[in-house]
Design a protein around this nucleic acid. Structure first.
Length: 202
DNA sequence: ACATTAAGTGATT
DNA sequence: AATCACTTAATGT
């Protein structure tokens, strides 16, 4: 993974030396809104979901973090020493390489390939974020739901999504009833197959 | 067999 | 598109 990024030799050795492997089970909350973050995570396996939430416990999924990626909000939080504006939860059990946050600033200055990596990730996540923003701002719930399913398919590499209507409703900040109705339409249009706790994209 | 959780539906706003 | 109130279906103990 590190070689793929063309990380410099010294960076790699430092990276390996000061970091450690963390295993996170499905459903674990890695970052809660308002928390200070002191480490930089890189995903080795699994997938994380980044969400925005309000005081009443509503939430909206922003984007996913996949293998060999990290979270731009976390980097932002580390570099500015500011509390996190987002939450992050484990979607599929993950292995994460965590390195101390205080190193990040130094690495960005010293290693151009690390710098590139950070900017590339940020660019990618910005685009994901805009895509979500567009969907929330301009799309009807039915289209939002379908886009959500497609995004999830792309993030997971699987056309089977193991989630309840309730869970999907939470992530889109709508009600379970609405999701069930729209799912029925998608099903009727032959766009999906449905089972309990499971949706298959066609 | 019973309780619990997931999903479907009509009516109302 | 949200909410209520209720039904039906699937699953766990």
């Amino acid at each position: 993974m590190l070689k793929e990024k063309n990380f410099e030799k010294h960076l790699i050795s430092d990276f390996l030396e000061c970091g450690k492997l963390k295993k996170a089970a499905k459903g674990a909350y890695l970052v809660s809104p308002g928390t200070e973050i002191s480490y930089l995570p890189i995903i080795l396996s699994g997938r994380l979901r980044v969400y925005r939430s309000d005081n009443e416990g509503h939430e909206v999924t922003l984007y996913y973090i996949g293998v060999s990626e990290t979270c731009s909000f976390v980097i932002n939080s580390i570099i500015n020493q500011a509390p996190s504006e987002i939450g992050c939860v484990v979607e599929t059990s993950a292995e994460i390489w965590v390195t101390p946050g205080y190193k990040v600033d130094d690495w960005v200055v010293k290693y151009s390939n690390f710098r590139k990596f950070i900017f590339q990730i940020t660019n990618k996540k910005m685009n994901d974020l805009l895509s979500t923003f567009d969907s929330v701002s301009f799309m009807k719930m039915s289209d939002r739901l379908y886009k959500y399913l497609i995004d999830l398919k792309n993030a997971s590499g699987s056309s089977i999504i193991s989630k309840s209507h309730q869970q999907i409703a939470i992530e889109l900040n709508t009600s379970r009833v609405v999701v069930s109705r729209l799912m029925k339409h998608l099903s009727g249009a032959q766009l999906i197959n449905q089972e309990r706790n499971k949706v298959e994209l066609l």
